[in-house]
Amino acid sequence: MTGVSARDAEFTDYVSGKAWWLRKVAYLLCGDWHHADDLVQTTITRLYVHWPRVRAAENMDGYVRTVLVNVYLAERRSPWGRRMPLFDGGEETPGAEDDLDSVLDLRTALAALPPRQRATLVLRYYCDLTVQETARTLGCSQGNVKSQTARGIGHLRRLLHGYADSFSEEGQP
């Protein structure tokens, strides 16, 4: 296969296999499935435009993950993005109630983190990247990743304990 058709076929194969993974990472970044789909759509469109560079990358998945994170961070920097709601608590999410509260707590707490802190935690703890890999993905120093991680974890703890406290208070007679 050559030319445009080869590009299309390779692109389609790769993206078809990775779309669900990208969607989950995007969801953890933005906190909303519909918005996550938009982020993935923008990401894969950029991948298509730069496909020769993508397929030449030593670590294709890493390259693609970097594009997704950049799309997310760029959007959060834009005037529209800064005002675009992340999780606003209004989305209906069906599921088992036992697990749902803790999942929703974490989603709400993540939404309160600054975008780079949130991206750092998702890359370190969901994508299992090392500090060095995270720094490369975010285009920052390893020291910056370490400090963002520490702050992010601290921030999450405070937020989640806050929710726990407020739930306890609501439960008082």
């Binding site: 299309d8 969801y27 298509y48 999942v103």
Partner: peptide
């Protein structure tokens, strides 16, 4: 916990690979 969150129920995916190719 992040993996659990990523497994939470989701609406059908709207990502459109054909459209990405066309726009690209």
């Amino acid at each position: 916990e992040l993996r659990e969150l990523a497994r939470s129920p989701a609406p059908p995916m709207r990502v459109d690979i054909a459209r990405a190719r066309e726009v690209g």
